[in-house]
Design a protein around this nucleic acid. Structure first.
Lengths: 259, 259
DNA sequence: ATTGTTATTCCACTATGCGGAATCAAATCT
DNA sequence: AGATTTGATTCCGCATAGTGGAATAACAAT
């Protein structure tokens, strides 16, 4: 969702030009951290100011944008409800992929998204074992101490990583939790290299987790399998990691599918 | 954000017709629980099907809507990021009002929004007392056992209340927690009558909270003050309740302000 | 196979959205 | 305090993007 020039979008993804432009502006405001001036938007959107102004006034009227007292624009509260309901649809979208993982591997599968400075579990399919991971949907966990968080962080810019970790903190949840920032960065380098993250009892003793970033997700998202380390051994890892990586690719493609 | 007929909107809130219509369709899908068919939308929007179809295809192309295999439409994942960032703006919007409450009353002030079946604290200004309420932003709490939840529930439809309570459950957090559904409904009747909710040690022993629904909020929202019951006595209540009610009105007006 | 319902595509038409020019408002400089 | 610069907003003639009725396609029910 990037193209503000309705003409070139017409050749790739046909659509109503004004609607495409309006969402492009919301996207640009989001890219700027939730706030931007009309001039900044004009520069990035490569559209004339009267056009941007008219679209923004419409969005303000709808509650999807707000004009601040310094004349800058911010995302508006009306988007919260749509975002909340869309988040619930995500669970529906990914459920088949999580179920497939559970069938193949026999362990609990989860999806979590980055929400502010914490990871939030938004869908889960538990395994059939009596002793299994159960993470309530909606639960917020520290990015630095979880597989899903460590899977997502490497895909972010360095300053964004610093901001998130500084804001959410690095509490010592178990003796295995990474609490040193430089050590975390080294771990993120390793994750980038091998393409998946491991939670080695960092969030909870006795629990292991393998997680992979979902490429192209509209918001940073990770898919994972988790369970007791007695079951999630190296042999399990060899089977699980390619399957989780495959699920991440499929989910990413599904989230980007437009037909 | 309701009017799908661009013409009548023109006289009230001028705007780009296609953009107004596109968001109206998203709103209608949201009203239907996140999913709707083209026919349902045509009926409620009072627009010709080709028009609705064209707008929906645009939204699908942007990732803001998804077409399911049964040809129905659902809200799409691209709205999640916008909703998340808009939620963070909410904190900025309400901060001055919460700060004002804390200055006037000397106790912690909070805003919480309904997210699925739980209330989520999205902003807080703590009091200066050493012993004070501190609720982490992002924390999810049960609607039936909190002031903010009980403030919001009376504004919802009966079937929505039943759905939320059935889904989130009514766990006994303290001996004072309401765990009987009929008793909860009676309490909601009382809240409707007097215009505010009280958490009488239901969420946490020794803690009291006065909460008011925010009228006209784009998503169910409540504002509250909370603290130890030794300080939040009846005399405090007499001072606090009108101020919290006033803050709720102001926040509601602010969230609906378009100029 | 037929019928009914819902969804999608086509296309002539025009009303809406566009964007350059003009104007206004705020910030900065002298 | 006044002038200049920068950014935002409004105006309005124009043309094309968006409209919606008709036609067609797809799906569900019988």
């Amino acid at each position: 969702m990037s193209n503000v020039d309705g003409q070139s979008t017409k050749s790739t993804r046909s659509g109503v030009q004004s609607v495409v432009r309006a969402f492009a502006l919301l996207d640009l405001i989001a890219d700027a951290g939730g706030r931007a001036t009309l001039s900044e938007l004009a520069e990035r959107a490569d559209l004339p100011m009267p056009t941007i102004h008219r679209l923004l006034r419409t969005l303000v009227g709808l509650g999807c944008a707000r004009q601040m007292e310094d004349r800058g624009y911010a995302l508006g509260p009306a988007l919260m409800r749509l975002g909340d309901l869309a988040g619930r649809q995500l669970g529906d979208i990914v459920q088949p992929y999580l179920r497939s993982l559970v069938q193949d591997l026999g362990e609990t599968a989860n999806i979590a998204v980055l929400d502010g400075d914490m990871m939030v579990y938004s869908a889960q399919v538990p395994s059939q074992h009596s002793m299994r991971m159960f993470t309530e949907v909606g639960r917020r966990v520290h990015p630095s101490a979880t597989g899903v968080g460590k899977a997502v962080l490497p895909s972010l810019k360095q300053e964004r990583i610093a901001q998130i970790v500084q804001s959410s903190g690095m509490p010592e949840l178990t003796p295995k939790t990474i609490t040193d920032y430089d050590e975390l960065l080294e771990e993120l380098d390793r994750i980038r290299e091998r393409g998946y993250a491991i939670d080695e009892e960092e969030q909870e003793l006795g629990v292991r987790c393998f997680a992979v970033n979902v490429p192209g997700a509209p918001t940073p998202t990770a898919v994972s399998v988790s369970g007791p380390k007695s079951r999630l051994d190296e042999e399990f890892a060899k089977r699980a990691i390619p399957l989780v990586q495959g699920a991440a690719q499929q989910i990413g493609a599904e989230l980007n599918r437009v037909e």
